[in-house]
Structures are given as structure tokens and as C-alpha cells.
């Protein structure tokens, strides 16, 4: 039993140090591997940092052509349905950020050939927050936001 515990402990420390290493590497050479999961963006603590790490810029222009469909009041923050729809041309990606979550970046959808400007999923929200949809098209970032009130948070322990 004792050795088992030590094993999990060792595993834990190894995992933590590798995270630290990856973070360090990420800071030194940002966007080194484009195709891989953007760890630094998902771990960023603010919307601006997350966007800079994800798209190289946090320069957003509000665009009416992006529609966010999410409930005005979400009773359960664990499952908040969200749909982002847009008819902007030449979309490269659609990202969803929740301003007041510990790590705002929730998801980023990279659209391939033929994909329409439509994605829907369900997400967790810690508390009432603005949800921001960021659409990258022709290298520019377009955004729209919507407030979702959360009565029971989805990130508590």
C-alpha cells in the first residue's frame, strides 16, 4: 500500500514539473507548434492573454453578423448550451470565451474546407459572465458578446 502511494505521489510531481516545463517553453517560443493544442491559450487567465496566445492578437472588432444563442439565465452552470452562428465570409476559426471563468478560453473550432459558420456545444460556467464569441476571418478578429446569468455555478468543489 505504501509503495502504491509513493507511486501516485511521484506521478503527481512528474506531471506538475512537466506542466511547468511546457509553460516555460511556451513562453520562450510562443506558437512554436501551431497544429498542437494551444496549451498557453487555454491556461491564460484573462481574455486578452488567451486571445494573444491563441490568435496572436487581442484586437477585437464588434460584428453584428455573429449571433450567440445561449440562455439569458442558466440554472445549472455545469451545462450551458451555446450556439454561435455567423455569415461572415472566409472564416478560419470560431472561439468561445467565458470572461469570468478561471481560464476564459472554452473552445476554439478550426473550420476546414466546406464548414459553415455554425457551431454548438455545451459548456461550464463558474458564475454570471459575458460569453464572447470570436470569429477569425481573413486574419481579422470579429467578436460578439452576450451575458449569461448563472444561478448555480459549475466549477465549485
Amino acid at each position: 500500500m505504501n509503495s502504491l502511494k509513493r507511486r501516485t505521489f511521484l506521478k503527481g510531481t512528474a506531471a506538475i514539473s512537466s506542466v511547468g516545463f511546457a509553460l516555460g517553453a511556451g513562453l520562450l517560443t510562443p506558437r512554436m507548434v501551431l497544429a498542437a493544442w494551444p496549451k498557453s491559450a487555454f491556461e491564460s487567465k484573462s481574455v486578452d492573454d488567451a486571445l494573444t496566445n491563441l490568435a496572436g492578437s487581442a484586437d477585437l472588432s464588434t460584428n453584428e453578423q455573429i449571433q450567440i444563442r445561449a440562455p439569458d439565465i442558466a440554472e445549472n452552470g455545469n451545462v450551458v448550451p451555446i450556439t454561435v452562428e455567423t455569415n461572415i465570409a472566409n472564416i478560419e476559426s470560431i472561439s468561445i470565451l467565458t470572461e469570468k471563468n478561471a481560464s476564459p478560453l472554452t473552445a476554439s473550432f478550426v473550420l476546414g474546407a466546406g464548414a459553415e459558420g455554425f457551431v454548438a456545444t455545451r459548456m461550464k460556467m463558474g458564475k454570471t459572465s459575458d460569453v464572447i464569441a470570436v470569429v477569425k476571418a481573413d486574419g481579422k478578429l470579429h467578436s460578439s458578446r452576450k451575458e449569461v446569468k448563472v444561478t448555480i455555478g459549475g466549477c465549485g468543489g
Binding site: 455545469n78 450551458v80 481560464s103 464548414a115 459553415e116 457551431v119 456545444t121 455545451r122 461550464k124 459549475g154
Partner: peptide, 22 residues
Amino acid sequence: NTVLTSLWGPAISTNPYLSFRF
């Protein structure tokens, strides 16, 4: 051909739902 690549953080709900059009 890859039509969609979804990059997710831990804030996606348990038993994820995904919908898209192409």
C-alpha cells in the same frame, strides 16, 4: 478532408455535445 478541428479546454461540459454544419 478535415472539416472541423475542435480544440477544447476543461470548461466543456461532461459528456460533450458538438454540432456543426458543412
